[in-house]
Design a binder for these strands. Sequence first.
DNA 1: ATATAATTTAGATATATATCTAAATATCTA
DNA 2: TAGATATTTAGATATATATCTAAATTATAT
Lengths: 91, 91
Amino acid sequence: MPPLSKTFSALSDENRRKIIDLLKKKEMPVTEIGTHLKITMATLSHHLDVLKRADLVSGRRDGQQIIYSLNLSVVQELTEKIIKFLKPKHK
Amino acid sequence: MPPLSKTFSALSDENRRKIIDLLKKKEMPVTEIGTHLKITMATLSHHLDVLKRADLVSGRRDGQQIIYSLNLSVVQELTEKIIKFLKPKHK
DNA sequence: ATATAATTTAGATATATATCTAAATATCTA
DNA sequence: TAGATATTTAGATATATATCTAAATTATAT
């Protein structure tokens, strides 16, 4: 599990949150993600890298394409961690 | 309610999360917050400003000091918003 | 009114990051 | 194997931000 700094930082960008929103519905290749965003493929690739380094998504190669999907278990753990952090008077 | 970008961005800094952690226990003046962090007062003031602009904390003057406290209702709303965002297949 | 204490503001610097174009890499197909 | 498609990497730029020192502001106390 990456540190919260990395997680929050990854989630602070609008385009990256859109990517996560897309991947919540279904996994998809980079080009398909790209059709929903107004950025170049290079920039998209950078954002995917940020999300990967935050362990929020994973990519697997399928022929020519790389299919990205949400790391559901990590997202679940993170949600709990964030809830705990935001809960007043925790600990 | 500020946009999620501003919220996540505010929460992405370790020192700001420490400030929030402190304010979860009780409200306190800037100097007291400062004793728990290894940064100058100027830097602390900047971080408080970021947290204020994200609507996460508020300051009220009490004599010479400004007492900061967590915006509990906003934090509650935000928690729900974040949970919703991170929930797979939402909407 | 002056000195002290608490906080913020101004200005500077160094690092991070969002974006782009162009080039490189990987895979498939004819 | 040559060409086409999908994705990433390299390199550049512009903006944001975390931090500091020094100065300004606000309130209290003498």
